[in-house]
Write a protein that binds this DNA or RNA. Structure first.
Lengths: 144, 144
DNA sequence: ACCTTATTTGCATCTCATGCGAACTGCCAA
DNA sequence: TTGGCAGTTCGCATGAGATGCAAATAAGGT
């Protein structure tokens, strides 16, 4: 996603207002590689702005995702995770601690895909490809 | 997953009981390629066995998944989807109707993966790789 | 400074999923 | 075949994650 300053301009030009809550969330999300849940972001935000509402965090995350500044993923760990990295990349998920890291994969477009039922072959228009690598991160590999 | 007959034997040998509810679910899931949610399976089961409980459906799905007879996935469409195909394969998800199809992909192990932060390179032990292709299925491509 | 319009917030609501316990039943053993 | 233990079913309560709603508040153009 873009910088807090750029987002400020983008929001205003859309007729949206730039509140202190939003500015804080812009800062907390910029260059954030932790793939936080809404709740996790709310915890961090609350420390810096006591009284901020969880509802507002959800609202702003939804707005940002709608503008294409964030991507969201359901990794099966319950809550949705948000990712300010909207460039082409994939994910590595630790099955032990749920930590997520961005990874970059070459050759995704060259994957040879087939269906068992060939009647459907070539009928699906792929718009995007998401790859999730599951395993154990360094820390968890050691501690088990 | 294995056939209803095989599952009957497997359950008994684990000290688990084979009830009419379970037998019905074994049948409904065997060779099922629709990737149903628990609720969807409950609907179908209810038609054939009025009075069966949603709780029992969840229970049996959990049991089967624990035995490795089913895989479950969170595709972001809300509820968890279950898949009796436990062989190596991947998924194609229609962004319009949420229909899911199994696809088979060659060369997954040969993907060249890299991290931006190379200090973590080679530190993650990949146990499995899940690929999701998102796009529009034939039907939805026509109707939009 | 004012006023219109968007935003924040707290609470209610909704969906998906699981915990719990009483009643029930599969199925092994006698 | 029958008895009885142990696993199941089922309904209700509960919990997590997320969204709807409306009153109070505040941004920011004029």
């Amino acid at each position: 996603m873009r910088t807090p300053a750029e987002l400020t301009t983008a929001f205003r030009s859309l007729g949206l207002k730039v509140t202190p809550q939003r500015q804080l969330l812009f800062r907390l999300l910029h260059d954030n590689t932790s793939h936080p849940t809404a709740e996790a972001l709310f915890e961090v935000a609350s420390a810096q702005m006591p009284g901020i509402s969880l509802r507002t965090v959800y609202q702003t995350l939804t707005d940002l995702a709608g503008m294409g500044e964030l991507q969201s993923f359901a990794f099966g760990g319950g809550a949705i995770r948000f990712d300010p990295n909207v460039g082409p990349h994939h994910h590595q998920v630790c099955v032990s601690c749920d930590e997520i890291a961005d990874v970059y994969v070459d050759g995704v477009d060259q994957l040879n895909v087939s269906l068992r039922n060939e009647s459907e072959a070539h009928s699906f228009a792929v718009a995007s490809t998401d790859i999730v690598f599951r395993g154990r991160c360094v820390r968890c590999a050691h501690t088990v």
